[in-house]
Computed example of a mutant assay.
Amino acid sequence: MSAAAPADGARLIYLMGASGSGKDTLLRLMRTRLRGAEPVLVAHRYITRDSGDAEDSMRLTPEEFSRRATLGCFALHWASHGLQYGIGVEIDAWLGRGAAVIINGSRAHLEQAHARYPALTAVEVAVDPALLARRLAGRGRESAAQISDRLARAAQTFPVPDRCRLLQVSNNDQPETAAAALLDIARAKLDA
């Protein structure tokens, strides 16, 4: 790998988007386009629910999550939708080795992530609201009321810290196109 990345997270990509926007699909497709030992890594999330095969997540019980948070095992962690999410401190080692690291974050947690990694690049996955509603209904994970709540939250603006670079990737068409755009962002981080 190339020279060590600065501790400010200059090679960190903080991926955000409404639930159902296709973040996990984009991350999975992006990995299929990596060349050999190309140093682009996707961090898995620790989460207090079963994640299924479609996500890069590891399930922890709420008690184990709390224990790990207390021990400082998370670089970032947050609560959302009644669940706990965390990104392991291993990302600091990956960044230190010069890798571009992509994490599946939360729009509501962007300010805290930016405070820890002030040079990160935030990337929002944008999806048309009608398409988002169909995707949420199709995955069968939430009730109609929960889907309505998620759609309302998706339409809300979120705070973007001063000097935080925010890019947008549209995922309204073929997900392969959006995955390629995400990989281009990661590769640009390696060249910076």
Results as ranks from 00 to 15, higher is better:
residue 93 A to W: 02
residue 93 A to N: 03
residue 94 W to L: 15
residue 94 W to S: 04
residue 94 W to D: 01
residue 95 L to P: 05
residue 95 L to C: 04
residue 95 L to I: 06
residue 96 G to F: 01
residue 97 R to N: 10
residue 98 G to F: 14
residue 99 A to F: 12
residue 100 A to R: 10
residue 100 A to V: 07
residue 101 V to Y: 02
residue 102 I to D: 09
residue 102 I to S: 08
residue 102 I to T: 07
residue 102 I to C: 08
residue 103 I to F: 15
residue 103 I to P: 11
residue 104 N to W: 06
residue 104 N to V: 10
residue 104 N to P: 06
residue 105 G to A: 08
residue 106 S to L: 12
residue 106 S to M: 10
residue 106 S to V: 12
residue 106 S to A: 12
residue 107 R to T: 11
residue 107 R to M: 07
residue 108 A to Q: 12
residue 108 A to H: 08
residue 108 A to F: 06
residue 108 A to P: 09
residue 108 A to T: 10
residue 109 H to F: 15
residue 109 H to C: 08
residue 109 H to D: 13
residue 109 H to Y: 13
residue 110 L to F: 13
residue 110 L to M: 11
residue 111 E to D: 04
residue 114 H to A: 08
residue 114 H to W: 14
residue 114 H to G: 09
residue 115 A to F: 03
residue 116 R to N: 00
residue 117 Y to W: 12
residue 118 P to C: 00
residue 119 A to S: 15
residue 119 A to E: 14
residue 119 A to P: 06
residue 120 L to A: 10
residue 120 L to N: 12
residue 120 L to Q: 13
residue 120 L to T: 13
residue 121 T to Q: 14
residue 121 T to W: 15
residue 123 V to C: 11
residue 124 E to D: 15
residue 124 E to R: 14
residue 124 E to I: 09
residue 125 V to H: 14
residue 125 V to G: 06
residue 125 V to E: 08
residue 126 A to K: 02
residue 126 A to L: 07
residue 126 A to F: 01
residue 127 V to K: 03
residue 127 V to P: 03
residue 128 D to C: 05
residue 128 D to Q: 15
residue 129 P to M: 00
residue 130 A to N: 11
residue 130 A to S: 06
residue 130 A to M: 11
residue 131 L to D: 05
residue 131 L to Y: 01
residue 132 L to F: 07
residue 133 A to T: 10
residue 133 A to I: 03
residue 134 R to L: 07
residue 134 R to T: 11
residue 135 R to Y: 03
residue 136 L to D: 02
residue 137 A to R: 15
residue 139 R to C: 05
residue 139 R to D: 01
residue 140 G to M: 00
residue 141 R to Q: 13
residue 142 E to N: 15
residue 143 S to R: 13
residue 143 S to A: 12
residue 144 A to R: 15
residue 144 A to P: 09
residue 144 A to L: 11
residue 144 A to G: 07
residue 144 A to K: 13
residue 144 A to Q: 14
residue 145 A to T: 13
residue 145 A to E: 15
residue 146 Q to G: 15
residue 147 I to W: 02
residue 147 I to H: 04
residue 148 S to E: 15
residue 148 S to C: 10
residue 148 S to N: 13
residue 149 D to N: 12
residue 149 D to Q: 15
residue 149 D to I: 07
residue 151 L to M: 09
residue 151 L to K: 07
residue 152 A to M: 09
residue 153 R to H: 12
residue 154 A to W: 04
residue 154 A to C: 09
residue 156 Q to K: 02
residue 156 Q to F: 01
residue 156 Q to S: 04
residue 157 T to P: 10
residue 157 T to S: 06
residue 157 T to A: 01
residue 158 F to S: 03
residue 158 F to A: 04
residue 159 P to D: 06
residue 160 V to A: 06
residue 161 P to R: 05
residue 161 P to T: 04
residue 162 D to I: 00
residue 162 D to N: 02
residue 163 R to V: 00
residue 163 R to Q: 05
residue 164 C to Y: 02
residue 164 C to T: 09
residue 164 C to K: 04
residue 165 R to M: 12
residue 165 R to H: 14
residue 166 L to M: 12
residue 166 L to F: 07
residue 166 L to P: 09
residue 167 L to N: 08
residue 167 L to V: 08
residue 167 L to P: 08
residue 168 Q to I: 11
residue 168 Q to Y: 09
residue 168 Q to S: 11
residue 168 Q to H: 10
residue 169 V to F: 01
residue 169 V to D: 04
residue 169 V to I: 07
residue 171 N to K: 00
residue 171 N to V: 05
